[in-house]
Simulated assay, not measured.
Amino acid sequence: MPVDQAAGILAPGVMSPTDFGFDALPELPEPAIPDVSGKRQAIIDDALTQIGKWYVWGGESDAEGGFDCSGLLFWAFTKNGVDIPRVSGAQAARGKRVDITKLRPGDLVAWENNPEAPGADHIALYLGDGWILEAPRTGLKVRKRKLRANEGAWGVAMDY
């Protein structure tokens, strides 16, 4: 097998991935969501069913064609009997502000993107292990993603 000894790699064009018995890179693993129970687990489970639904400003149901960030949380929490306000700023104020590292699955993650309007203007559900579920913005769908350290977000510990 021709190898570039200096770089320690196969010479270009000599072999393809199928020569090694695979034809694609492996998928990234799903987030390792810590074991939770009760209403927290029910809220997470219900919210996860909305992955792939369109972001719709003001939306809080399939009947409206999708969800905005706070509408998604409002839908999942109220479906499970937890009283939560409808808009992101009020949702963020509903819990206690904490460092992201102190969050438990089922808590919230909030952002302030507009300094002219203080308070949370985007919000997401914390899934655990640094993963969130969000309805991001117009043109995108509800998704799971890893929270990045430099996003300027803060945690909201919920008391349900």
Score class of each variant (00 low, 15 high):
Phe74Lys: 00
Lys53Ala: 13
Gly58Tyr: 08
Ala63Glu: 12
Phe77Met: 06
Glu30Val: 11
Lys53Met: 13
Glu30Ile: 04
Asp4Arg: 08
Tyr55Met: 01
Ala63Arg: 01
Gly38Val: 11
Ala76Val: 01
Asp68Ala: 02
Gly8Trp: 01
Gly65Tyr: 04
Gly8Asp: 05
Pro26Phe: 01
Thr18Glu: 14
Ala11Pro: 09
Asp45Phe: 07
Gly38Pro: 07
Phe22Ile: 10
Pro85His: 05
Lys39Asn: 13
Thr18Met: 08
Pro17Ala: 03
Trp75Tyr: 14
Met15Pro: 14
Ala42Met: 11
Ile33Phe: 10
Arg40Cys: 06
Arg40Met: 05
Asp46Cys: 02
Trp75Gln: 07
Gln50Asn: 06
Cys69Thr: 00
Thr49Tyr: 02
Asp62Trp: 02
Asp45Val: 03
Leu72Trp: 03
Leu28Ser: 15
Asp4Gly: 11
Arg40Ala: 11
Val14Trp: 00
Gly71Ile: 01
Pro31Leu: 03
Pro12Gln: 10
Gly65Trp: 04
Asp4His: 10
Ala32Phe: 14
Leu25Ile: 03
Asp83Ile: 07
Asp83Met: 09
Gly58Asp: 03
Pro12Asp: 10
Asp19Ala: 04
Asp62Thr: 10
Ile51Glu: 05
Gly66His: 03
Asp35Ser: 14
Lys79His: 12
Gly38His: 01
Ser61Val: 01
Gly8Gln: 02
Ser16Ala: 14
Phe20Val: 09
Ser16Arg: 15
Tyr55Ala: 02
Leu10His: 10
Gln5Phe: 14
Asp62His: 00
Ala47Phe: 01
Gly59Leu: 07
Pro12Arg: 09
Ile43Gly: 00
Pro29Lys: 13
Gln5Pro: 10
Trp75Asn: 08
Gln41Leu: 15
Gln41Phe: 12
Ala32His: 15
Pro34Trp: 06
Thr18Ile: 13
Val56Ile: 08
Glu27Ile: 13
Arg40Asn: 03
Asp68Arg: 07
Thr18Pro: 04
Cys69Ile: 06
Ala47Asp: 07
Pro34Val: 02
Met15Val: 15
Trp54Glu: 13
Ser16Asp: 12
Lys53Gly: 06
Ala32Thr: 15
Ala42Glu: 04
Asp23Tyr: 12
Leu25Asp: 10
Pro85Leu: 02
Tyr55Glu: 01
Ala63Asn: 00
Ala42Asn: 08
Trp75His: 11
Leu73Pro: 07
